[in-house]
């Protein structure tokens, strides 16, 4: 897998990660190298293996539909970088 700057840009945009020109170059070489290592997985035949997402096969875990005390709204807002009253403030969403 050859990682090129366009792929780095695409992935960084998906991840909403800002890049400096230096970062971009660094990722091209680092990701290429790491993926080259990861590709040793391709030497294995795992066609019949069921993908393992959870280590154990727990099933059907619910909570009851019971009203519980919720934390005060102020708790949720306490760490807000910017807010107005009970709302989180963000840059304008649509142009």
């Amino acid at each position: 897998m050859k990682v090129d700057p366009a792929l780095v840009d695409h992935v960084a945009r998906l991840a909403r990660l800002g890049l400096t020109p230096d970062d971009r170059l660094r990722y091209v070489s680092e990701l290429t190298r790491i993926l080259a290592y990861v590709e040793k997985l391709n030497t294995l035949d795992v066609a019949g293996a069921e993908p393992l997402v959870h280590p154990f096969e727990g099933r059907n875990v619910f909570r009851p539909d019971a009203v519980q005390a919720s934390p005060p709204p102020e708790d949720g807002l306490a760490n807000a970088p910017d807010r107005i009253e009970k709302f989180f403030k963000v840059p304008k969403v649509i142009e």
């Binding site: 107005i84 009970k86 989180f88 403030k89 963000v90 840059p91 304008k92 649509i94 142009e95």
Partner: peptide, 10 residues
């Protein structure tokens, strides 16, 4: 679009 340049989230 808002003139105030921000949106709020609840």
């Amino acid at each position: 679009a808002g003139r105030a340049g921000y949106s709020l989230v609840d």
